[in-house]
């Protein structure tokens, strides 16, 4: 069995500047794609299968919706809304997601919308790591990195 001592954990850069525009146009494409959460999104433990839906090619915001209708998240490529985003994905998470190489990995972040006053934030602390080859995903909590849970992108 693969085990890891978190205190001494090696890390791997799964995304970064090089991943910025990774398959952005092709993924997910204009047809919904079913993504399986290998571990459920915290707060939505009963939902494992989601549809990832692009509105159109030019809209960087996609919908991530449970196949049974809920929850519904807006997600976005984090590198578009925070060019300095440079998270380090723990190796155990990359391994858990069966990622063999970086080109299979895409990061998405969940958008939170507050109304009155309108504010739009993204959760940079807990991105969704997606294995685009296998359509698997997991929300990775970046334990000891200081990326904010609510990073404001409201213009």
């Amino acid at each position: 069995m693969m085990t890891q001592t978190t205190g001494n954990e090696r890390t791997v850069k799964t995304a970064g500047a090089a991943g910025k525009t990774l398959e952005r146009k092709q993924f997910p494409g204009t047809t919904p794609r079913v993504i399986e959460m290998k571990r459920s999104i915290p707060g939505f433990e009963q939902v494992r299968r989601y549809s990832l839906i692009a509105k159109d090619d030019d809209n960087p915001f996609w919908l991530l919706r449970g196949v049974d209708g809920s929850p519904v998240f807006v997600v976005v490529d984090p590198f578009l809304v925070c060019p300095d985003y440079d998270p380090v994905i723990p190796e155990r998470e990359a391994r858990f997601l069966e990622l063999k190489d970086e080109s299979e990995a895409t990061l998405l972040v969940i958008v939170a919308i507050r109304r009155e006053p309108l504010s739009v934030t993204v959760n940079l602390r807990a991105p969704l790591l997606v294995n685009t080859g296998k359509d698997l995903a997991v929300q990775v909590v970046l334990e000891d990195q200081d990326w904010p849970v609510r990073y404001t992108i409201t213009p």
Partner: peptide, 11 residues
């Protein structure tokens, strides 16, 4: 914090 943020992010 992440779980609460997720719950508040679902439309």
């Amino acid at each position: 914090a992440v779980r609460e943020q997720n719950a508040g992010s679902s439309l």
